[in-house]
Each structure stands twice: as C-alpha cells, then as structure tokens.
Write a protein that binds this DNA or RNA. Sequence first.
DNA 1: TGATTTCCCATGGTATCCCATAAGAACCCA
DNA 2: TGGGTTCTTATGGGATACCATGGGAAATCA
Lengths: 155, 155
Amino acid sequence: MSGFVSHFTNRLDAKGRVSIPAPFRAVLARDGFEGLYCITSSHCEAVDAGGNELLAEINKRSEAFAKLSPDHDALAIALFGASENPKIDGDGRMVISDMIRDHTGITDQVTFVGMNYKFQIWEPEKFREYRAEAQRRALAMLSGQVPVPSQGEPA
Amino acid sequence: MSGFVSHFTNRLDAKGRVSIPAPFRAVLARDGFEGLYCITSSHCEAVDAGGNELLAEINKRSEAFAKLSPDHDALAIALFGASENPKIDGDGRMVISDMIRDHTGITDQVTFVGMNYKFQIWEPEKFREYRAEAQRRALAMLSGQVPVPSQGEPA
DNA sequence: TGATTTCCCATGGTATCCCATAAGAACCCA
DNA sequence: TGGGTTCTTATGGGATACCATGGGAAATCA
C-alpha cells in the first residue's frame, strides 16, 4: 500500500486540538511509531510530520557528519531542537503547540498534506499559495528531467 | 493479458458512487493494489487512476531528488498532495471525491478511458472534446511531415 | 490551588456494508 | 436454431460503522 496521500483541512477546537485525518492515522499505525514525529521545515512555513520513516530520513542526514564533531553537534541541535513528539489521543487528535503555531501561522484551521513518506502541517491559505508555486516548479522539474537540451516548452 | 482498454460511461448515484467498469476491475485485481490510486492530471481536466503500476511510475519521478530537499518537497506536494486512495466497495464502486469533482467538472456521469497501464476519469462531454482534438492532432501527424512508415492509417 | 492537560463520552453527518433488482450476456440442451 | 436458464453487471436503497468535533470530568503541573 502507499503512504500519505491527498490533503485535508480540519478545524482546531477551543483546546487547541485537531483531528489527524483518518487515512494518515492508518499509515502511522502501520509505521508503528508511538505518537507523531514533528519537525519544522527549514525552507518553508510548514511542519514535517510522520513516524519512523521520516525519522530515518532525518537520521540519515546527520549521519553524514562524524559524531562529536562540531558539524554534527550543530546539525543535531538544529534538527532536534526544532522537533517535537506530540501525543495522539484516543480520538486521533493532536495538540498544535506554540512552536508549530509560530512557525506556520496556524490560527483556527489546519491543512494536512500527504507527501508519501511524511506529511506536512500548514495554515490553509499559506498552503494554497505554496501549492500553486510547487505545481509550477514540479512541471518545470518533470519536463527538465527528460533529456531535452533546450528549455523550450511544447505548446 | 492486456491492461486497461476501451472506454465506458457510468452514472453517479445519489451518494456519489459510480461503478468501475468490470473489465477495469479485473485488471486491478491482477495488479493487486488495495483500492485504487488516483492522481489529478497536471495537463488536462482528467484524473489518472490505476494500481501499483501507476504508483511505481509516480514514485520513479520523485526518486530523482533527495528527500527533505526543497525540490523534493515541491514535487511531493504536487504529486502526492494531488493523489488519493479511494476504496472500492464490494460491488466494485468508488466514490467521486470533491477533489476529483473540482478537477474534472464531473456532475452526474463519469467516463472511464483505458490507457493500458492506467485509465483516466473524465466528465463525458469534456472527454468527447478532448478526444476529437486528439484525433485531429493524430491525423495531422499521420498525414503530415512526420515519417510514419508501414502502419496503415484509419479512414 | 488555579491553570492546563489528558481522558472519556456524546452527537451529527458521512461513508461503508450489505442486500435487492433489472437488464443484458453467455450458456446450454434439445 | 431457438427458447429457456443462469451469471454478470450496473444501479438503488436501508442499516450500520466511522469520523470530526464539542464538551465535561479527572489528572497533572507549576
């Protein structure tokens, strides 16, 4: 089966809770991670979220540097300082922390976006903007992937 | 045996369900994917649908970029954020989600178009127009400058 | 002890499961 | 060949399960 796909927008309640979309919970259950792993994205106003599969990707990054080296320490602080492990309650909800609020600008609604091995947490309006841009970039990337020398776009 | 071929038009019921053509279900059963994998087409008002074979094609595209990089993120949002995994019920039906409705303009009827390794989901009238245009282009290519050697041309 | 967090239950809307039916296709046997 | 029979398929609808959301109460923390 596949990973996190599609996107959903849910409401925050008065206690700052929001339902994680049921299809995403099913993927997390298969992954086996306890709770949720969250880390603020370094290049956009979103939070990466997932389980063991996401954690493995992050670890892979820091393994490129020797442990105890200054580079490794700096990266570790940057990565894990920007991370959280929110719990998921019995009804499949998580609490949006202040860190997530500050980094995303979320107020009363949350958009969850599937990205296969992880998903992202967005403020809905910011997501719409980012998505339009992402689609433009994706089109350019995919057409550039094919060995076509010129930048020309057919009709 | 072959993949998805021919095309069929079925009705949506009051609950937004539509029967997936039986021949397509047979192909999906052979493919072994759980449910259906759907992704909105980036260049026309249709949705690509299929199983593992389609998913593999999509994965291949995103694997060209390093995970957690801005490029990969943009591509993942464009691809997987625009995807869905509809279930197929015991009678071989799927529900047409709002995302599919918005992207295709489907209201009360759905046209399923076989394309071998995948099939497409269209609003019937839009498909007729697209098909007519595709045939014009094909005719122009066949009768025109492009060297098409031995294959007989229609009409 | 006051404020916050966590657990538990309630509810309305929706999706899913299951069964029914009608039309057509395939099949069979004389 | 022809008529009857059985299967398959698309479609409709009732009953049930699930899900997002709200809110009370217990537990935890400062």
